[in-house]
Amino acid sequence: MNQVLDVLSWVLLSCGGFFILVGGIGALRMPSFYTRMHAASVTDTMASFLVIGGLILQAGWSLATVKLVAIILFLMLTSPTSSYAVANAALLSGMKPDTKFKANKGGRES
């Protein structure tokens, strides 16, 4: 049983790591501000939930688990809010979202 939990937690942890990597690459490579933010939000939500889920499995039934659950709840509240605030600030400062799918900025596509 312990073995299974251990494997499962490592799977979760590595998946979390993978999504952090994806989010990082996305934040660097995406074409516009809003798409970058979209990519970065993967690290906020998916990746951190997976990592903390893995950690909970590692911790077992202890005080640490309670604290980790509290962290998840806190993240669920704050990270969407902060993303909203950033996007809203960008919109207010005059950055227009690209609605016409002109992804070929810089002539990368033919």
């Binding site: 509240l77 969407p80 909203y84």
Partner: peptide, 15 residues
């Protein structure tokens, strides 16, 4: 004037 930060902030504040 901003609903989302306001609600979330009020929720977190006591904690």
């Amino acid at each position: 004037q901003h609903l989302i930060p306001k609600v979330a902030g009020r929720f977190i504040l006591p904690f």
